[in-house]
């Protein structure tokens, strides 16, 4: 019963009228010379009581309906497959370039300069575009997930808290069509993304999906702080690294030992840092949209752990039910009206 509520509770004051049928009779008064002469009629007495009860019920139904009786929105716990996912998207300038490291040529309508269909081979897509398409699909394939979005450039941007509202997630992913911002400051981005899991129950798997096309040096202070955070939040980390042509990538060991430092090879060093965290971690290196698609499918398959999730049941309006009762009660009263004895 606690989940019932009223839209306009003040209308409940009208319930006082419930007592009206007890005080007044709904029957036409008929003058009669001597009441004692009327025989006792149990049926009439019964009907008299019935009429009053029906009328009281009608008043109750009317005012309950008028005050907007409804069952509150509820969450029902169900078990499905899914995860809590925070996507951390790179908004640095280079994301607006293609996988070949150039500004994307022309518009991506799937046709080349001569108007022939390219089947995606020639038309260049910026990395941000490719990421957007795939992430949109990914979100659509994950019905029960809670998804949050953070972005980072020189500073971290809080975009969308963990939510099941898919429209909102799409709105946030779509907004990455606007030009990217400045530099890559990954450590702040990571700590913001991890903060999304604060005050969230640990339930099913927690995933941090980092989508970036480069890395940056993490200073020792942030590194220590991040280590603690990663441990605390118990996340699984996926790094979707969009490799640009001629960039070293995350798995390449340097030929020259002089290059073996974080400034020269930030990607490799970030990869080493992630690997040293002792958390489930997987890096995907994608040089083109197809490789990205594969990585995304992979994550989609891997992350199907059982998840307790709350299914929202929207609030149920019960005033319609009240009015149907009211209609029925009025119909009964009208029927009883025909049984009334009349003397003119």
């Amino acid at each position: 019963m606690t989940d019932l509520a009223f839209e306009t509770p003040w209308a409940l004051m009208g319930l006082l009228l419930i007592f009206l049928p007890l005080l007044r009779s709904p029957m036409q008064a008929t003058t009669y010379p001597w009441l004692d002469i009327i025989p006792v009629d149990p049926l009439s007495q019964l009907i008299n009581v019935l009429i009053r009860v029906l009328a009281m019920a009608a008043f109750a139904a009317l005012f309950l309906g008028l005050s907007g009786l409804h069952r509150k929105a509820q969450h029902v716990e169900r078990i499905g497959h899914g995860a809590h996912i925070v996507m951390l998207l790179d908004r640095s300038n280079s994301m607006d370039h293609s996988f070949a490291g150039k500004a994307p040529s022309g518009n991506d309508d799937g046709r080349d300069a001569g108007g022939r269909a390219t089947q995606g081979a020639v038309a260049e897509q910026s990395k941000a575009d490719a990421a957007r398409h795939l992430l949109t699909q990914f979100v659509d394939h994950r019905p029960h997930d809670l998804i949050g979005i953070a972005e980072y450039s020189t500073s971290p941007l809080f975009v969308m808290s963990l939510t099941e509202n898919k429209q909102a997630i799409h709105a946030a992913i779509d907004a990455t069509t606007t030009p990217a911002l400045a530099y890559t400051n990954i450590s702040k981005g990571l700590s913001m993304a991890l903060s999304f899991f604060d005050h969230q129950p640990v339930n099913g798997s927690r995933i941090l999906l980092l989508v970036s096309d480069g890395a940056a040096v993490i200073d020792p202070d942030s590194e220590a702080a991040l280590r603690v955070l990663f441990k605390q939040q118990q996340v699984r980390l996926y790094w979707l690294f969009l490799r640009t042509d001629n960039s070293p990538g995350i798995l390449v060991q340097p030929d020259d030992p002089r290059d073996d430092n974080a400034q020269a090879m930030p990607e490799l060093y970030l990869h080493r840092f992630f690997s040293s965290l002792n958390i489930p971690y997987h890096a995907y290196e994608a040089e083109n949209p197809d490789a990205m698609q594969k990585a995304i499918n992979d994550i989609n398959q891997l992350e199907q752990m059982p998840l307790h999730y709350l299914q929202a049941i929207p609030k149920q309006d019960l005033s319609g039910l009240c009015y149907r009762w009211l209609t029925g009660l009025i119909a009964c009263l009208l029927g009883l009206k025909f049984c009334e004895v009349r003397r003119i």
């Binding site: 908004r91 941007l157 939510t163 509202n165 709105a171 946030a172 779509d174 911002l181």
Partner: peptide
């Protein structure tokens, strides 16, 4: 920089609320 495209205010109120609170 656009953080997210417009979302419906009734269905997305809690998301909007949190996103606005996080502006810094």
């Amino acid at each position: 920089s656009i953080l997210f495209e417009p979302i419906e205010v009734c269905a997305g109120y809690s998301e909007l609320d949190k996103a606005i609170a996080a502006l810094d």
